Simulated scan of single mutants.
Amino acid sequence: MGSGKRDVWSPLTILPFAMMAVVAIGDVLAGPGTGYLPLLALGPAFASLAGGVARTAAVGVLALALCAGLARFNHILSSRNSTLTFISLIGVTAAGMLASFYRERDERELADVRTIAEVAQRVLLRPMPRRVGPIRAAVRYISAAAGARIGGDLYEVVMTPRGVRVIVGDVQGKGLDAVETAAAVLGAFREAAYDEPGLPGVADRIERTLARRLTGEQFVTAVLAELHPDDRVTLLNRGHPPPLLVRAGRAAEPLDPPEAAPPLGLSGLVDEPACTFSVGFAPGDQMLLYTDGVVEARNGKGDFYPLTERAASLLDADPETALDTLQADLLRYVGAPLDDDAAMLLLTTERA
């Protein structure tokens, strides 16, 4: 953001005036002949770090006025040294104004790029309906710290003739490339979820889409799920953190796949295709799918957020309330903005 939105009382804003005050007081106390006046150039130099062009110029003018007053006080106003000091102050102020101009321009461009990426990401991640067929769904997306780059977290829930199908994933890397890859994955999933008879076919369609986009060792971790009417859920995990299954009165159970499988985009590294597996998913059960920004969040001591231990006690029967509680607990545990974007998708069926 531009300097106009910075706190007027921030340390970097006060520092130029504090430095010039220290130099002026030191020069007066030291008396004539000490030669502190060139240090007044620290004022406009520090002003260019946080202030805009106008503020840097104003600090430079103030430094020149202080220099003139102190030179008169020391009876050296017309001396060669004072003239060189004036020239130095003018040069430092001009350089600071130029640096401020380029810094503000770069900050505006960076803010514009980030805004475009955020808008693109929000367009991709469409609002989640509260009910998809027999399934109640809720989602929370937590943006990272302002300094972090936009990530490629993705999620989608669709109703198909074969049941409710779900994807939660995370694109390797950051920035607009990650957002574009997430768009490609979601587009392929939305098409394949209606057409393919099984989750492996859906994953293969996404793989073919990624093969036209990704280069080198880029990849996308993802979990695909299909919820069946007979109280079962089929899962296909491609290198993603395992979903958590929470049954009433029981601890959260990580749904680890029977065999590890590579992320989407890296299937050529193995000979055998990834296997699906099924677990019971009865009315009242809850399944939490999430991205690694949740479990890799750390507190001030460097400890990871213990999602598995906390999920069972925090998930309310209402998905919206449950995720509000879980998100608040996560942010309270970290005590600061997250370093990476985090997404959480909670699915449940109502009891008959």
Rank of each mutant, 00 (worst) to 15 (best):
E350N: 04
T321L: 09
L110K: 11
L154V: 02
F17M: 15
L236R: 10
P16R: 04
L39V: 08
G2D: 14
D329G: 09
D341K: 13
T34G: 05
P262L: 07
A343I: 08
G265W: 06
A21V: 05
V179A: 07
E259V: 08
D231E: 15
A336K: 15
L314S: 09
A95F: 15
R212K: 03
I142N: 07
A138R: 03
V113P: 01
L236Y: 02
A117S: 10
L255K: 09
R298I: 13
G151K: 05
V158D: 07
L331C: 10
A99R: 15
F46Q: 04
G133R: 06
Y102N: 01
M20G: 03
G249S: 02
P263S: 03
E296P: 03
R190S: 06
A211C: 08
L125R: 01
T308D: 11
T276V: 14
V220Q: 05
G280I: 07
C275I: 04
W9G: 14
L110S: 08
E107H: 11
S143K: 12
D292F: 01
C275P: 15
L49M: 10
G175S: 06
G26C: 08
V233S: 06
I142W: 01
A120K: 04
F219H: 11
V113N: 02
E320V: 15
E191G: 03
P200Q: 01
A18H: 01
V139N: 02
A54Y: 10
